[in-house]
Amino acid sequence: MLGSVLGTTKILGVMGFPVSHSLSPVMHNAAIASMGLDYVYVPFPIPVDDLPAAIAGLKAIQSVQGFNLTIPHKVEVIPLLDEVLPIAQSVGAVNTVKRIGDRWVGTNTDVAGFLEPLKQINCDWSQMPAVILGSGGAAKAVVAACLELGCPVIHVLGRDPKKLKKFHGTMTSQLRDYNLRVHPWASLPHLLEVAGIVINATPIGMAHDPHTPISEAEMAILPNHAIAYDLIYTPRPTKFLQIAEARGIKAIDGLEMLINQGAIALEWWLDQPVPIQIMRQALIHHLT
């Protein structure tokens, strides 16, 4: 029966910690059901210290065909894989892994997913400096995406000086010929004055977190033509985007990024087109 988990059922999933907030199972299982496939998509809550054991253990389970990665595993997983495709190498972060034979192969679908809603905006990206909040795996994908857009300069802010320095060194070695600058968080007000697009790539404001990475006073500094983009999609909208909308700034949440990166990943796992509209409808229904 469709929807049953049988001995033949193949397994996909999302690995993170925490991962209970993830809506990936909602959209992936909706797509799988509509396609009539003997697959199921499940969450894998894996603490950081257990990641090596989890990667090795899942390889031994032949029914596991692949998995996504979310905070905090997108960077740490790289040395645990058998192969990393060029897009993920250039970004320095993996969000999707596929079993190919007896090997784990990693890629990155976040870049394409992030860009999708921005393709609908008519603006001169060469006049839109980017300000990225956060220096983790998601921020690495955003840097690559902003480079592809043609942003003239990319500013990355972080609270941990050591992590920020490591981020800059890694990205500079992987993505050349672009203007990347890293800054302590205290530089935020100055950078907001010239920002064309500001992206929250931190977990601040996720789920039941009432905080926001940018205050109302700081949001007031942004130019009128600026865009506020939050990679978080629950709650919807986040407090960050509520403040942006109240200020009259164009606001984009992470839902379309989630949908598009997920559809690309599912197509890669299944080697066939997937019903992205069903994935979108499932998420919107779930959230409303």
Rank of each mutant, 00 (worst) to 15 (best):
C151Y: 02
T234A: 15
L37F: 08
I154E: 05
I78L: 09
N95Y: 10
H28Q: 14
A201M: 03
T8M: 12
S135N: 12
D38E: 10
D110N: 04
P210M: 04
W268A: 05
P43L: 00
Y178K: 07
Q242D: 15
E116D: 11
N224S: 15
I55E: 04
E256A: 06
F44S: 00
E83A: 11
V91N: 07
A144N: 02
D50W: 04
C123R: 14
P152T: 04
N260S: 14
E245K: 09
G134S: 13
M35W: 09
H183G: 00
C123L: 11
D253A: 05
G113K: 12
K165W: 04
I227W: 06
H285G: 07
L192A: 00
P235W: 12
T109A: 13
D49T: 09
L241S: 10
I227A: 03
P72Q: 10
Q62E: 14
G3A: 08
G158C: 00
L149G: 03
N29L: 09
T96E: 12
E267A: 06
A207I: 05
A201C: 11
D230S: 12
T234S: 15
G205Y: 01
V182I: 15
L133E: 07
M279Q: 13
E116P: 00
E83S: 10
M279K: 11
T9V: 11
L231H: 12
F114R: 07
A265H: 05
V64H: 13
L175M: 13
A30F: 14
I252Q: 02
H225Y: 14
K162G: 12
I121P: 08
D209F: 08
L283S: 10
G158Q: 00
L164G: 02
I221F: 07
A33Y: 11
V91A: 01
A263I: 00
Y178P: 02
V131P: 02
H21Y: 01
F44K: 01
A112S: 11
V182E: 09
M15R: 05
A30N: 14
K59R: 07
P273S: 11
P189D: 04
P237D: 11
P45Y: 06
W268D: 08
L6P: 02
I55H: 03
P223A: 06
L133Q: 01
T202N: 05
C146F: 01
D50Q: 14
W125G: 02
N29P: 09
G169R: 12
P18G: 02
L175V: 15
